[in-house]
Simulated assay, not measured.
Amino acid sequence: MLTGFHVAVIGGDARQIEIIRRLNGWDATVYIAGFNQLNESFTEAIDLDFESEQVKQLDAIILPIPGMDEEGNVDGIFSNRLISISEDWLKKTPEHCLIFTGISNNYLNDLTKRVNRSLIPLMDRDDVAIFNSIPTVEGTIMLVIQHTDFTIHGSRVIVLGLGRVGMGLARTFDHLGAEVSVGVRSSKSAARVYEMGLTPIDMTNLQDVDLECDILLNTVPQLVVDASIIKQLPSHALILDLASKPGGTDFSYADKRGIKAILAPGLPGIVAPKTAGQIIADVVYRLLSKNIRKEIDHDA
C-alpha cells in the first residue's frame, strides 16, 4: 500500500487514467492536472493547485510518456492547454520527491539537476521497456493488417534495430510466417539474429544491401530510412516507423515515391492503454516503496 504517499499525475493520455486508478487503489493521495476535459471524474483524486501548499507534500510527480517540451510545457489529450512546470515550483517539492517521465530531453535533464531532484526516465528501464514491447508489437501487427492488401505470412519483412522492441517484432513476424531480416550494427547482434533463424543485415552499410521488402519496420530514432533506402522499395511497400518523434524515416521522400510511410510512436497508449498504464504503475509502486518509504519514516 502507498498510504501516506502524495503523488501528482500531470498530463498524458489514457495510460495515466489507469495509473491514477492504481494509485488510488493503493491508498495514495493523488493530485491530478491536465484532465479537465475528461468526462469520467476521479472522485478520490484532488485537482492540483500549483499556487497552493500541495507541492510541499509531493513524494512523486508523474509526467506523461513524452515528458515535457524544451520550454517546460507538459501536454495531454484530456486538457485544452499546456501545463507549464517551472524551476521555482519544483524547488518547493521535498528533496526526496521523485520525478517520473517516460522519456527525457536536455531541458528536463538540466531542470531536475538544477533543483537537485531524482529523475527516472521509465522507458530507459528494461522492466518497463520489455513489458511495453508487447503492446507495441501487437499494435504493429494491427497497423500492418490495416494498411496492406496482402498477408503477413509469406511477406518479406525488414526490422531495423534489435533492441527490446526490435527483438519482439522480429520474433513475432517470423512466427507469423514472414521472411524476416534484421538490421544490426554489431557482430554480437548479428550472431543473435542468426541464432534466431533470421537473416542479419549490416546497418553500417545499408546503401550496399538489397533492402527490397514488403514491410519495413524501423525502431531506430535516427534518420536511417533515407532516400537511398526508400528507392529500393517496391511501390506497394509499407514503412512503419516506431521510433520516437520525429522518427527515422524521410517521410517527404516516401510520399514523393508514393510509398505509404507511417510514424507510429506510443502504440501502447493507443492499442492497450490499460495494460501500458498498469506496467508503469507497478514500476512506480516498487520505486516509491523502495526509495521514499525510508525518507518518510525518518522524517516522522
Rank of each mutant, 00 (worst) to 15 (best):
I158N: 02
H175R: 15
A170P: 04
E179W: 14
R156I: 08
V184C: 14
S181I: 03
G168R: 00
V165F: 10
L169I: 08
T172K: 04
F173I: 05
G168H: 04
L162V: 05
V180H: 00
R164N: 09
S155A: 14
V184K: 00
H153M: 15
S186P: 09
S187P: 12
G177F: 02
D174A: 13
V182G: 13
V182D: 12
S155M: 07
R156K: 15
G183Q: 06
V180N: 00
L176D: 05
R156C: 12
L176W: 05
V165E: 07
F173G: 00
D174K: 14
I158V: 11
R171P: 08
D174M: 06
H153F: 13
G166Q: 04
G163Y: 03
R171G: 08
H153W: 13
S186V: 12
V165G: 11
I158A: 02
M167T: 14
L162W: 02
L162A: 01
I152V: 06
V159Y: 07
S181F: 04
T151C: 13
G154V: 07
F173P: 00
V157P: 01
V180A: 00
R164K: 15
E179G: 03
V182R: 01
H175K: 14
H153A: 15
L162M: 10
L160H: 06
V165W: 11
R164L: 07
R171Q: 14
S155D: 07
L176T: 05
F173V: 04
G168D: 03
A170W: 01
V159T: 10
H175V: 14
S187G: 12
G166V: 06
V180T: 00
V184Y: 07
R156H: 14
I158K: 02
M167E: 11
S186W: 10
H153N: 15
G163F: 07
A178W: 02
V180W: 00
V184N: 06
S181L: 09
V184S: 05
G154H: 03
R185L: 15
D174T: 14
L162I: 04
R185Y: 09
L176R: 02
M167K: 10
S155K: 01
R185P: 14
G154S: 00
T151K: 11
E179H: 10
G161T: 13
T151L: 10
G183H: 09
I152H: 02
R185E: 13
L160Y: 14
